[in-house]
Design a protein around this nucleic acid. Structure first.
Length: 195
DNA sequence: TAAAGGATTTTCT
DNA sequence: GAAAATCCTTTAC
């Protein structure tokens, strides 16, 4: 079952937790790839300096102000694309960064897209999973979710030991807020959060 | 195994 | 002009 907009119409920290175990599906170029979400990070609108929208709306972060369930894909560090799911009510700029997947379908396609990479590393990292799913393209700025190129399906229940809730230190020494990061035990993008 | 540094371009101040 | 929600390779231990 594909998650509805109402699933995302909540604070990003809650959505991040509930996205664990769900399956992210991407259909591009005739190939269908999917992976189970094992790490996600919520960015709240309430003064988080690491949130792209903390200084208001810009051309880049405009999708964050859109309806819940919108895909927000942006470019950073000169070479990486990152995927977010927009959360909370329309006009409230919150999102969940998808940080790592456990590959489910289309692994051969992922291997072609990421040659010379071990299976464990195919989707272990927010930029890595974007490459494995083939999301990088000139039409990144469009609403991939609404166009049904990209969607997230409901996952199975998680065990108590499956979920790790860890605060992540914000960007810069003056970070005033800890973001909420949730992970499962395998395929996490980093061994442990700082702080 | 861990740490450090380079790659590279968009965005905002 | 500086910083950025990162990744990959090299180097050191």
């Amino acid at each position: 079952m594909i998650l509805s907009a109402s699933f995302y119409a909540r604070p990003a920290d809650r959505v991040a937790r509930d996205l664990l175990g769900c399956v992210l599906v991407c259909r591009r170029g005739g190939a269908r790839c999917s992976g189970r979400i094992v790490e996600a990070e919520g960015y709240l609108s309430d003064g988080d300096p690491a949130c792209h929208a903390c200084r208001g709306r810009t051309e880049r972060n405009a999708p964050m102000f859109g309806p819940p369930g919108t895909a927000y894909v942006y470019f950073t560090y000169g070479m990486h694309w990152l995927l977010n799911a927009v959360c909370n009510a329309e006009g409230v700029a919150e999102a969940v960064l998808i940080r790592a997947l456990e590959p489910v379908d289309g692994i051969e396609t992922m291997r072609r897209r990421r040659p010379n990479v071990s299976d464990v590393d195919l989707c272990r990292g927010p930029a890595r999973l974007v490459r494995a799913l083939g999301i990088e393209s000139p039409d990144n700025r469009r609403d991939l979710t609404a166009r049904r190129v990209l969607w997230i399906e409901q996952g199975g229940p998680l065990g108590d030991d499956d979920v790790i809730a860890a605060p992540r230190v914000g960007v810069g020494d003056d970070a005033r807020r800890l973001r909420f990061c949730v992970r499962r035990s395998r395929y996490v993008s980093r061994p442990a959060p700082r702080g």
